[in-house]
Design a protein around this nucleic acid. Sequence first.
DNA 1: AGTGTTTACTTTATCGATTTCTGTAACCTA
DNA 2: TAGGTTACAGAAATCGATAAAGTAAACACT
Lengths: 359, 359
Amino acid sequence: MPNSKPDFKIPHATCIVFLMAVRMKDIAKDLGLSVVTISKVLRNHPDIAEATRERVLKRVRELDYQPNLMARSLVTGRSYLIGLVVPTVLHPFFAEVAMALSSVVTKRGYSLLLASSEEQPELEAREIQQLMARQLDALVIASCATDTAALEKLARNGSPYVLIDREIAGLAAHFVGVDDIEAGRIATEHLIEQGCKRIAHLRGRDTSTGNKRHDGYRLALHKHAIEYRESLVVSSPWVDIDGIRQGTEAIRKLLAADAVPDAVFAYNDPMAIGAMRAILDAGLRIPEDIALVGCGNLHYDGLLRVPLTSIDQHSAAIGERTAQILLQLIESKTPPQPASVILSPSLIVRASSQRKPTL
Amino acid sequence: MPNSKPDFKIPHATCIVFLMAVRMKDIAKDLGLSVVTISKVLRNHPDIAEATRERVLKRVRELDYQPNLMARSLVTGRSYLIGLVVPTVLHPFFAEVAMALSSVVTKRGYSLLLASSEEQPELEAREIQQLMARQLDALVIASCATDTAALEKLARNGSPYVLIDREIAGLAAHFVGVDDIEAGRIATEHLIEQGCKRIAHLRGRDTSTGNKRHDGYRLALHKHAIEYRESLVVSSPWVDIDGIRQGTEAIRKLLAADAVPDAVFAYNDPMAIGAMRAILDAGLRIPEDIALVGCGNLHYDGLLRVPLTSIDQHSAAIGERTAQILLQLIESKTPPQPASVILSPSLIVRASSQRKPTL
DNA sequence: AGTGTTTACTTTATCGATTTCTGTAACCTA
DNA sequence: TAGGTTACAGAAATCGATAAAGTAAACACT
């Protein structure tokens, strides 16, 4: 017997210190009722006399009984667990999404299982496997995967899931995120409007966000008849894990290659911050010599050495919308068709890009 | 039958798409073995012939079988779940602790359940309750509670737990954090050494960290025979949730009251950042008019408008040490006596406090 | 009075695993 | 050859709950 416990009768209203958790069986034995009756009381089943209900609830309070949610889940098939897989919670964007998500689902009785993929597709696949084994009700994934294998397995398994931030090509799934092409376009056009001609882009990895912001960048250049130059685009690994350093190094690379730009659009704010450091360290001025735009609109952007112009991704809204979809997926009998919620990014202009006075 | 499933025989090596998860029972039926045998194979029980073992493993791979961890936990009494309760993951300190903790325990097969108390003791108590019902193997708590009720219940329940960052008076528990008195002392003495005389403190809430940093502040003043003035100490609510604004308002309050300091030690970095904004907005210079020291040493501290002197709390180390203690608590038969791991904070000097040139 | 309906519980089966105990050959040993 | 081991597999009980079906008593109606 792994969890043995003597089924002795607990004296009324005295003993309050327990070593093992109280079970329904204990309460039932105490009151001379069956386990099922206790269970029904706790789930507000109508089938119970008022007097009995109160007797049970009284004892439940006395013993401070907590139902074993695992046992319950095993039989109901509902775990009230939601998994969240992100590259890292160190990046404030994901932390904010996590908070917003958590605060909505917690109110409905769900708990959040957090896993981080550290931007490694294999690790992500393992984490998803591990979470699936825990019978989650649903999963939220900001995937760093490039193939659809892990997620197709999820779908086969019948586990509902929602992608956030990053879409995956060739996968019809629920998605919540911002319009990243638009984000890239707005940022770049803003720089163009400030009179910049040689606009560099510190691009993100080969994910939908990285690619689309880059696409938006090209689109804006093209629209304004500015030549796209490979030499002004820098790729870095780990942009989400270690963005600041990646940004610094990217700028050093540009400057060393004599490919000096007059503006930089960085994939995210940490990279922009790194870029800021490298630019200032090189003795250049922001925005006079190089104008700078980031993406993410972190809380402290306005308080940086040079307040940073950035694209707001509405992280809290992403978390909330995701939570809504999740609850729908879980609670409706006929799950809705895969749908995308694409939020419009907003440009927040600060000093790092402002060459012309506002009119 | 809530989770009914026909026990049909799956044709070999063809059907790969499933709607319901595969169970041991399916594999057993497939191979003409008993469930127990499958279970033994999967747990490397010696009691199995090599030929059988391979037949089972082959089928397990074919069907991509994943054991139902809930069912397993129910009988073993081990869930391989660890709960983490923090005031918020928006604060980078907690995000960093969470990441470090997660990365250690994940490698050992544990998953992390995340809950945030939003700095509200009642919410914290509810979250702890909810997590306990999930039969966690252990709990990590950065508590915002002032009384010991919720945690005593935990102890009664036999759930191992570790406090981090904030201690609770009158509770003998495992604890991992920095020496906050020392943190307050170092920060304040540094300001004194820079020649500051009227040092304000934006203090944290009535938690061990808030109180101890304040104690350290008083200690340093006393040591250097500087009078402690109530008027230079500002208390704010929600210092961890909404620190930037609290910092801004605190400074405005000081300036409005004509209690203009020549230095400010802020409870944490977000508050320091808010303070920075208010000071600069008021047309004062940092550090010439007011020197500023924060606490937390966030990644971007060096890139703020005025690079911020701060106290490093070794968040990653806290996460890792906590993980070690957790694993000990869970895996050893005779849990060790409650012990505290107190790390020494380090002062990171940057421009915001540097009035005298470094020698 | 006889039959149907409620009301309030209980009994039995089940969820998907693990643990402990049994059972059966085959193989040794004296 | 009898008695004892060893190797391998299965049966039954269990974990702590819920679901579905069953039952006994009280009440209702014609």
